Amino acid sequence: MMVAKITFCRLSALLSILAVLSCDPIVTQFDDTEDGQLYTAKRLQPPPAAVETIGVMTWNIRFGAGRTKWFGDSNGTRVILPADEVYYHLEGIAALLKAAEPDILLLQEVDIQSKRSAYIDQVQWLLDHTHLNYGAYASVWKAQVIPSDGLGRMDMGIAVLSRWPITNAERIKLPLRGDQDGLTKYFYLRRSILKTRIALPGLQEFYAVNVHTAAFSTDDTKKIQLDIFKDELDKLESRGIPFVAGGDLNSLPVNATKTDYCLSDKADDESFHGPNDDPQHKEGSYFTPEITWMQALYDTYSPAVLLNDYGANESHYFTHTPLWDSPYDRKLDYLFTNRAWLAGSDSTYHVAAPWSDHAPVSALWEVPK
């Protein structure tokens, strides 16, 4: 999840910034489709030449902030992190990746040139400090300056990392939130899908598709984004192309027993559900009217974590909490495929708690013969 609200400086200050930076747009706005940004590790490590299964993982790494009490998503006050703190968290992330050894990694909330994370290119750093060789990146939030709480320069997005070459990467634009005023929307996140073609041994075509849908929308923006994500998968399926797909979908499984987290997520000075409370629900914490929004994905494609398994032991599969000092208490992160996962191969890594407010999820994908 990411940035519940962004509060802005007075309009006069904003106009002054715009005047200074008038040569280039202050906020990057994207075309419907664009090329993703490609990366290569400084030192390539030979990938397997033949595979029967590959390890696939998805992980929202929270821009290297660990469980820091950041102002945007954990009722905290921190805004800008020093480089040594970011590197400490990245080293923990890299250690888990080297232990788990995923062959393909879907990342969300990755910073590449952001003031808040000391301008570290986290895609390049992770390639250079793990066994993964190639990467593709699509920005979700890119601005010369975010005039809120000193955030400054921002470039955060989603990425796909792979042992094998990424031969094509496409950024697909998703709709903006429909419940924000114009000024807030201008500076807010611009969600996207990252669709990558990977040269996997033994397959003529193979794709890995990554998405991070809206976390705090109070309208149907997230539903529209999920539908577009599924449409992109349907296009691959209609052509008979195998894929793995997933990410941080900011949605609960359709059989989740708890769907309202407003009271457990609220800050001390917040109140919800009372007769005089407006709004009645905390943004990003009320899933009750959304509980069916994942049904089409479950009906059409194979999840790494089966609904029956999830229902039998929900807490085992939880992947997120917005609270800096609490265990994971809901599942928001998923993997799907139009082929098959090796039965019983899925893992949800609660040991990742020091490194992110999201736990990674992995499974072994059976390479079609």
Rank of each mutant, 00 (worst) to 15 (best):
V140D: 15
E283C: 09
T319K: 06
L96V: 08
I120A: 11
D73A: 06
E85Q: 11
A100T: 00
V211W: 01
R190A: 12
S217Q: 04
S251P: 03
I6Y: 12
K230C: 12
D73N: 14
R239L: 11
T130S: 13
G202W: 09
P201V: 04
E270M: 01
S217M: 06
A199P: 01
P175A: 09
N250Y: 01
D35V: 14
D73C: 15
H281N: 12
E91H: 10
A94M: 10
V140S: 06
D179C: 08
D265V: 05
L126Q: 07
L11D: 14
S264D: 10
D299L: 04
D121Y: 02
L323A: 10
Y119T: 12
I172R: 13
D265H: 11
G284N: 03
I120S: 06
W59L: 13
V254Q: 11
T7D: 13
K222T: 13
I80A: 02
P48D: 05
E91Q: 15
V160D: 03
G178H: 10
F243K: 08
Y317H: 10
L307M: 14
R43F: 00
G247Q: 02
I26D: 03
D84C: 11
R190M: 09
E85Y: 08
Q144F: 01
T348V: 15
E101K: 01
A118Q: 05
R163A: 07
P46V: 11
Y134G: 13
T348Q: 01
H273W: 02
G311F: 02
E85G: 00
